[in-house]
Amino acid sequence: MTTETCAPTPALLALLRACDGSIEPRSQGAEARVYDVQLSGVECVAKQRFAKTYRLRELDERLTRSRLSAEARTMVRARKLGVLAPHVVHVDAKESCVYMERIRGCALKEALRSGETTREDLRRFGEEIGVAVAKLHDGGIIHGDLTTSNLMVRDEDGRVVVIDFGLSYPSKLPEDKGVDLYVLERAITAAHPSQTVLFDDILAAYKKTSQMWCSTLNRFAEVRARGRKRSMVG
């Protein structure tokens, strides 16, 4: 990571100073940088989406705009559905920046890779994730990017917090829910091949929680089968 590409924009820099924030991002994901800030004494993070210069400008601007609003809107709705997600503090559309509660903890992928997770921990993670995804789906929300990078394990109580709702959208279609689960399954099998029981536990908890588990899991099985059957010529 070069420091040059990590530098916040001048406007954000002013804001970061005003709200007593760190200028070094805590992370640079695919599309956003996340800074630690203090807003009226509360520890927050500022997540700013930056322009992706490989994309055509008009396409990029449209995506940034719609993802920013999807993210803020869904986070609020997710919390109303009883899903553990950061509390939204403020949205600055002009700077493509959302300020939210800071979660103290680490990404689930780091917890899984630390080699310190027991079968019991996995079972608990699986249960919590399955319940959270079921609540989102039953509430008509598709997360859109369920991976072990976008689930955090909170320090205070070890609970799983769902983050990164930038690709979320409202839908009640079994196909969309099925794909959401499929994305999560592959994120786990590819990145954590020896801990795939986690996904079995997630599905089990999902089934227990979701009112519509039957249509969703049927469709999930279909999406999966399509993947296996794809002829892959060329």
Binding site: L56, E58, L59, R62, L63, G144, D145, L146, T147, L167, V179, D180, Y182, V183, L184, R186, A187
Partner: peptide, 14 residues
Amino acid sequence: FVEGPYGVKGMDVN
């Protein structure tokens, strides 16, 4: 540029 749908699903595409 004719804008169409944009089908990114996490690390998958439609």
